[in-house]
């Protein structure tokens, strides 16, 4: 069968093919080199992290049987057959869940308020003083690099056991994370309105209020909602170190092998997180829609 594609004569084709082969070979070697580096890194880390595949596969059955046992009551019946027995602590858990949500909300709100006041100082385009900008940036970095739980551990010592330590830990972490994101939003604004307001002789605060703020507000709200989702998840484990919320009961149930309680609380958490994610997702999409229509 005659091929419709024009064939080059061998004399011309030869060097082209050779060049193609060489370039492919170079790329292959490159890939191989990267793969080798990754393999070496994995091998070294496996030693350091005490990875024991024999033990893992020997115990893998445990994992599935553990997951299975989560769905049996103490009496041996499946949890779904007796929901009342399964959710015997529903009133208490719902109260703790509400506390968790409140912790996430208050923490996010306090963090967002702090970040709101810091971000204009941290943004390169509007910051009044370079040294102030550096200072605020470093502060935000510190707040978001130290894990929430570490703050929670320290706050538990200072404020005692209870949700207040958790709220403050969430707030500090959100302050750091949102401070950075808000500052990036401010750095991306159109500078003309700010210049316009400044040209009328307005003070810096007025320029920010009327020049910068209207451009940034919807992004601020959107990032705050996103942070709220993250914080709801984070607040569920604050109880692990005694900083309030549903984590307290969860960690007790897991440690003491109250299997059906573990599944009951986990399902509550998963459902709550999904509802919150969906709700904030809807609000965020509407905000983005508003932004685009303008």
């Amino acid at each position: 069968m005659a091929s419709p594609v024009a064939q080059l004569p061998d004399a011309q084709l030869g060097p082209l093919l050779a060049a193609y082969d060489a370039s492919v070979r170079a790329r292959r070697w490159n890939t191989l080199l990267v793969a080798a580096c990754i393999v070496v890194a994995v091998a070294l880390s496996s030693v350091s992290a005490e990875v024991d595949l024999v033990k893992f596969f020997a115990n893998l059955g445990n994992f599935t049987s553990y997951l299975g046992r989560l769905f049996y009551l103490d009496g041996g019946a499946l949890v779904f057959t007796d929901p009342v027995e399964w959710y015997w602590g529903l009133a208490r858990w719902l109260r703790l869940l509400a506390e968790t949500l409140l912790m996430a909300y208050v923490g996010t709100a306090l963090g967002a308020i702090g970040a709101f006041f810091l971000c204009f100082l941290a943004a390169a385009n509007v910051s009044p003083r370079p040294w102030l900008r550096m200072l605020v940036r470093r502060f935000c970095e510190l707040c978001r690099t130290v894990p929430e739980l570490v703050f929670a551990l320290m706050f538990v010592i200072a404020f005692g056991l209870g949700p207040m330590a958790g709220v403050l830990a969430v707030a500090i972490h959100s302050l750091g994370a949102l401070g950075k994101l808000f500052a990036e939003v401010v750095e991306n604004i159109d500078m003309k309105p700010v210049e316009g307001v400044t040209a009328t002789g307005a003070h810096w605060t007025t320029a920010m209020r009327y020049g910068a703020l209207p451009q940034t507000l919807s992004n601020f709200v959107s990032y705050t909602l996103l942070r709220f989702e993250v914080n709801v998840r984070g607040a569920t484990v604050m109880g692990f170190v005694g900083a309030g919320g549903i984590g307290m009961d969860l960690v007790e149930a897991i440690r003491k092998f109250y299997y059906s309680d573990v599944s009951a609380i986990l399902l509550l958490i998963v459902a709550t997180v999904m509802v919150i994610d969906t709700l904030t997702g809807v609000v965020r999409h509407r905000l983005i829609g508003l932004e685009e229509r303008r």
Binding site: K55, F56, N59, L60, N62, F63, Y66, L149, R233, G234, T236, V237, F240, L250, V251, I254, R255, F257, L266, I269, V270, V273, M274, D277
Partner: peptide, 16 residues
């Protein structure tokens, strides 16, 4: 939607 610490606790029950 399950936090990493919860997974850690569950895996501790499995592999120690």
């Amino acid at each position: 939607s399950v936090d990493i610490l919860i997974w850690a606790l569950i895996w501790i029950n499995v592999v120690g």
